[in-house]
């Protein structure tokens, strides 16, 4: 494989990075937003529709973020304020948002529209090999790099990130220490949702330009699976996204020679995720990784303990 292939992998994984990291942020706070497959679709649609109507890609991306932010807010409101099961709300919203994207996106189907323009970074683009892979891309791709690094740094190396982990891990203890658990959960759910939306819009305005029904082809579920595969750790989640991107490209390249396998390869992340989980849950592996600090945490990748549970102070 040459640098150009790697560049394509990086570019094609970008929307997934946004969605999976966004969901990682949400789940770190202890909220599970299961609506990804629907809300990404809806954001892909609104993002494209706004960009198409206004001619502004930036506005389109913002609209995509806002859309999934609103969907995420419904999940948070249902799960936190109304105390309804987050899984139920997420699944219903998946269905609803999917259908809504088809309904409202009808007039934009298969129309040529604006897209994110390539912008090589001066100096960096000339780095041999890596320059072509990483720095002859578009601003969205650069932003995804930034998001990986900043989310990692924020979660594991800042005070507020510590609070974020705390509310997903032991909300009652965090609350007793004076951290406003539910307000923060609202914030991170909506923030994570906004990145999910950016992932959706990144499809229709960049990775798979344009809009059609079911445009993002199960990428929402894939993003959810990658969060687990990535052990709720931004770096490993990102690794999973690129790995998936690579599998996709390999599948594409095999299309002419091995058409059967090429059709089936896109499902590879799921068995991979399941086997990874089963492997990591084995007692031997658990006790082995316990011996290492940060690296062990990266490998073990345990879910936030209070994931999906409502916290009621009274």
């Amino acid at each position: 494989m040459n640098a150009a292939t790697f560049a394509i992998i990086v570019a094609s994984a970008t929307p997934l990075i946004f969605a999976a990291i966004g969901e990682t942020i949400t789940e770190k706070a202890g909220v599970v937003n299961l609506s990804l497959d629907g809300s990404m679709l809806l954001s892909a649609m609104t993002g494209f529709a706004i960009a198409y109507t206004t001619g502004s890609v930036e506005l389109g991306l913002l609209a995509g973020m806002a859309t999934s932010g609103v969907v995420a807010f419904v999940v948070a409101f249902g799960g936190i304020r109304l105390r309804v099961n987050q899984i139920a709300v997420g699944l219903i919203l998946t269905y609803f948002a999917t259908k809504l994207s088809a309904l409202l996106g009808g007039e934009f189907v298969r129309k040529p529209g604006p897209s994110v323009q390539k912008m090589s970074l001066p100096v960096l683009e000339d780095i041999p090999f890596f320059g072509e892979i990483l720095f002859q891309q578009n601003p969205l791709v650069y932003f995804s790099f930034l998001l990986i690094i900043v989310s990692f740094w924020w979660i594991f190396h800042t005070r507020r990130g510590l609070d974020l982990q705390a509310i997903g891990e032991r909300p009652e203890a965090a609350f007793a220490r004076g951290i406003p658990v539910n307000s923060l959960r609202y914030f991170y759910t909506v923030l994570g949702g906004a990145f999910v939306g950016l992932g959706g819009a990144a499809f229709s305005l960049d990775a798979k330009m344009g809009w059609s029904e079911g445009h993002i082809a199960n990428y929402g579920w894939i993003a959810l699976a990658l969060v687990i595969f990535g052990g709720w750790h931004p770096l490993r989640v990102a690794f999973g996204c690129y790995l998936f991107g690579a599998i996709q490209i390999v599948a594409l390249k095999m299309q002419p020679t091995l058409p059967d396998l090429a059709q089936v390869l896109p499902i590879a992340p799921f068995p991979l995720m399941i086997l990874t989980l089963v492997f990591l849950n084995m007692r031997v592996v658990q006790s082995f990784t316990m011996r290492f600090g940060g690296i062990g945490r990266l490998i073990r990748g345990t879910a936030p303990s209070a994931l999906g549970e409502s916290f009621w102070p009274d």
């Binding site: 005070r159 609070d163 982990q165 705390a166 032991r170 945490r297």
Partner: peptide, 16 residues
């Protein structure tokens, strides 16, 4: 004790 088990001692010291 309001300790967060996955975190280091100093992180626990800081939370809140």
């Amino acid at each position: 004790p309001l300790v967060f088990l996955p975190f280091s001692v100093v992180d626990n010291f800081l939370i809140g």
